[in-house]
């Protein structure tokens, strides 16, 4: 028997609402708005209220998959990154760096967004950087 509430921050958008995860016997069972959180003051949108559902979803990806001959095969991070890097190199060599674009997100941190644009500009060599909120 193990029941607890774990404070966290909603990962859905950039607002950063405070939530409490309800954990019953080791399983994420519910989400409540954090009533004293300065951002959302006890309110949530419909996505926030249902966060525990995607964490427990059977469709959730838990490890990298690589598409090979039309099928997704499980792999590890090193392998997945190596394959992606090789493909990027091929594409840049063949079609030029502007054939690649990088989409950043409100769900990731400021620093991660910075790294993503740095990667686009300094590594790939393109200014094609955009944000998910503008899609």
């Amino acid at each position: 028997m193990d029941y607890k509430f774990v404070p966290s921050v909603c990962p859905y958008c950039g607002t950063g609402c405070g939530v409490l995860f309800e954990v019953i016997d080791g399983k994420l069972a519910g989400t409540l708005p954090n009533k004293t959180h300065p951002v959302n003051e006890g309110k949530l949108c419909i996505k926030g209220w249902n966060m525990h559902e995607y964490v427990n979803s059977f469709m959730r990806l838990k490890q990298p998959l690589v598409k090979s001959f039309g099928r997704f095969l499980k792999t590890d991070w090193d392998e997945a990154i190596r394959i992606t890097a090789d493909r990027f190199k091929e594409i840049v060599e063949k079609h030029g760096p502007d054939s690649i674009g990088v989409l950043v997100s409100a769900k990731i941190t400021n620093e991660e967004n910075y790294l993503a644009q740095k990667f686009a500009r300094a590594v790939i060599g393109t200014n094609n950087v955009d944000h998910c909120a503008r899609l």
């Binding site: 509430f5 404070p7 409490l20 004293t36």
Partner: peptide, 11 residues
């Protein structure tokens, strides 16, 4: 917890 009063299970 972390400055927030929140529900807690005492055992």
């Amino acid at each position: 917890i972390d400055g927030h009063v929140m529900p807690h299970f005492f055992t």
